[in-house]
Nucleic acid binder design. Structure first.
Length: 322
DNA sequence: GGTAGACCTGGACGC
DNA sequence: GCGTCCAGGTCTACC
């Protein structure tokens, strides 16, 4: 099938930057770890391109040392900054290709320049050597918000199940459902078929807000508005509380607030050695990371992610996903 | 402003 | 196999 290329920022590394956030294992996203030397893994997803489901694969081959010879990279770093190869499973027109390119640009945060990452590394040099900085997100803000809602007050295994079923039941060809589709869903049917529990009404109401017009989306993606203002807008939405609002802010590329949940408390106690009840530990975690200013979420997240990988092995090799 | 309890599901545990 | 308990963030009622 005809593939095309996307040139990422010079520091981009697919397996590192896709497997950097739990959404890489939430449907319809799939990560296939590399099977042989030189294959760092493949990111797969079914995209809804104007109402047509298209499965696409993304890889980041390294350049062969000599033309005509196979690639034999010494380390996965040999892939850094190399063009991404996008392979749709079926022929697509120019418009669909543009949609796919835009979707991947948002998901992989290719619009975050190397300079932006360098700003983070200046505030927190611990992540400079491995080059960590980008976190996977969804092709649309709507999907990011629904995924956040499905991650609240539930075990991760249930979050995975909810997203899988939402795609199976309401998505075109297994893609993530559109706002209009979820807005038209009956909450009771969604609850019974997708296991979303009491989140049913909240998901439908959120979908109605996004399906109605683009004002909400445009407001939330307005770079001129302050974090505090966007936080107020988010918390007004059904199913969005303090934790979800902060998480959605980071998904919008605003890293100045921490989504403090029970994981933050666990991290505060076990890694940072903080003491006190949950409320106290949360406040102390917040104070601990305040020194990283507008990048504190990234510092917090990579610290936690490093802990997960220490326990379970590299995410891109195992595909455990949080 | 702070707090308690309900919401729902799946997993762990005891029997 | 069944019943019970618990974890998880948001929302509402109440003080």
């Amino acid at each position: 099938m005809a593939s095309f290329r996307i040139t990422p920022p010079t520091d981009y590394l697919l397996h590192r930057d896709v497997c950097s956030y739990g959404y890489f294992v939430l449907a319809p996203n799939v990560w296939v770890p590399g099977q042989v030397a030189g294959d760092t893994g493949t990111f797969c997803r079914i995209f809804d391109l104007g109402g047509i489901a298209v499965r696409a694969e993304v890889t980041q081959p390294c350049l062969p040392a000599q033309p005509g010879k196979p690639c034999r990279p010494a380390t996965p770093r040999a892939h850094r900054g190399m063009p991404l190869r996008i392979t749709p499973a079926r022929p697509i027109c120019g418009l669909a290709r543009a949609q796919l390119r835009a979707a991947l640009t948002r998901m992989l945060r290719l619009d975050e320049s190397a300079e932006t990452i360098a700003h983070f590394h200046k505030l927190d040099p611990r992540w400079r050597r491995r080059g960590q900085g980008r976190l996977l997100r969804s092709p649309t803000l709507f999907e990011d918000i629904i995924k956040t809602v499905t991650s609240c007050n539930v075990a991760w295994s249930s979050t995975k199940r909810m997203n899988t079923r939402l795609c199976e039941v309401y998505g075109i060809g297994g893609a993530f459902p559109q706002p209009a589709t979820l807005a038209a869903a009956r909450p009771a049917h969604m609850r019974a078929s997708c296991g979303v529990g009491y989140r049913d009404v909240r998901i439908v109401e959120l979908a109605k807000r996004f399906a109605k017009d683009d004002v909400l989306k445009d407001t939330l993606e307005d770079a001129t508005l302050s974090d505090a203002h966007l936080r107020e807008v988010l918390i007004e939405l059904p199913g969005i509380g303090p934790y979800a609002a902060s998480n959605i802010l980071q998904l919008l590329g605003r890293y100045g607030q921490l989504p403090l949940d029970t994981e933050a408390v666990r991290h505060g106690r076990t890694v940072l050695g903080l003491r006190g009840n949950s409320r106290t530990v949360m406040k102390r975690v917040g104070r601990h990371f305040a020194k990283f200013k507008d990048q504190q979420f990234r510092s917090y997240w990579f610290e936690m992610w490093t802990g997960y990988e220490a326990l379970r092995g590299p995410a891109h090799k195992r595909g455990w996903g949080g």
